[in-house]
Design a protein around this nucleic acid. Structure first.
Lengths: 193, 193
DNA sequence: GAATGAACAACTAGCCAAAGTGTTCAGTCG
DNA sequence: CGACTGAACACTTTGGCTAGTTGTTCATTC
């Protein structure tokens, strides 16, 4: 097993454990035990406990993003692409219980603005994906000529907003209906008239 | 001075003090001192410290809402109305420093979903205002036939999102550009084609 | 080079007393 | 008679202490 794979195994075990007990309550021995190694060894893969936490969360986010990117690339029509991007990105958390639990315990993971907080680079990559879809739409004259940069950041914020509403604060009338209204508004707002 | 006015005086003094020191650090004697009365007397106007805090914040919110409502009613064209509603509601915080400081110290005041958390009734009233503008637009055939309830909740969430981005986490590229993109997208998404 | 495990440092939990603050209420004031 | 006071009371917070736990380092082993 190469260093690459070992790192992934460690990050996944760490995520699982943090998800179960929360950051404060998990000890490095919990994680090391889960992996059949000693806690000292973890320091070869992360500089401290916090760093291990952030690395494991960032890893889960990158996986998430790759899945969405694959699904988006499977479609060619830009409107379909946009819709798939929305729906898949939104649905992913529901199948990753560890990440869900992490987010629930630590809502500050998500910041409405992409360029702040931890996970800067993951967020920037997400905004990049949105931008590319927007640019395709404009190039093909399906979308209006909007300010791509600002619009992408705005759409990203809407996305995070739904994540927060759906998983961090679950309550109120079905989020699904509002999600539908949102996608409807966004697509109609983008299309040329 | 009637009971009504006295209550307002107390709520305003409370807000000012909470804004200066934060909830934990302000004592009831701070507030009572500001008003030239003793702390025991405050209990005739609120059932406890927390209640006093929430009442004072709710009062500021209602003022805010009334101002926006006035400005909106001054316009007749529904697109202008919509835009004025967005801009004024967004701008108000910048002129109320006390409320700004409160929100900064206690970001959980704003929840993205209107029906949860404290200040339920204030939020519901805001959603109601949005609904009425939407209904006018649809009635006049300027807006598409959207699900008014869901759309209003969605728009409200966008609004809160901007409040949070602008005042709670100030950073990143100018929020103004993104705000413009947002209003642009919303209006275009609503208009009939 | 990867991993260990003992040693060390830093933090946390529990406890206590003292001080501060929120809450109540019998009594005063206008 | 209602608005208000001020002292009494109860609850929470603070700081200082100790013991125990947990994060971090590193010389040594595999």
């Amino acid at each position: 097993m190469g260093r690459q794979e070992k790192t992934i195994r460690i990050l996944e075990a760490a995520l699982r454990t943090f998800a179960r007990y929360g950051f404060k309550k998990t000890t490095l021995e919990d994680i090391a035990g889960e992996l059949g190694m000693t806690k000292g060894n973890l320091y070869l893969y992360a500089k401290d406990k916090r760093d291990l936490y952030e690395k494991s969360v960032a890893h889960a986010f990158r996986e998430w993003q790759e899945r969405v990117a694959e699904d988006v690339e499977g479609k060619k029509d830009v409107v379909v692409r946009f819709r798939v991007m929305c729906v898949k990105a939104y649905a992913y958390l529901s199948v990753n219980e560890d990440l869900q639990s992490i987010v629930l315990r630590d809502p500050t993971i998500f910041t409405l603005a992409p360029r702040e907080g931890r996970f800067y680079s993951v967020n920037v990559a997400a905004v990049e994906m949105i931008k590319q879809v927007l640019e395709q739409g404009i190039r093909e004259k399906r979308f209006r000529q909007v300010d791509v940069e600002s619009m992408a950041e705005f759409l990203f914020s809407i996305y995070i907003m739904f994540i927060i509403r759906a998983y961090v604060k679950s309550e109120g009338k079905p989020v699904e209906a509002i999600f539908e209204a949102a996608v409807d508004l966004m697509i109609n707002g983008l299309l040329t008239r």
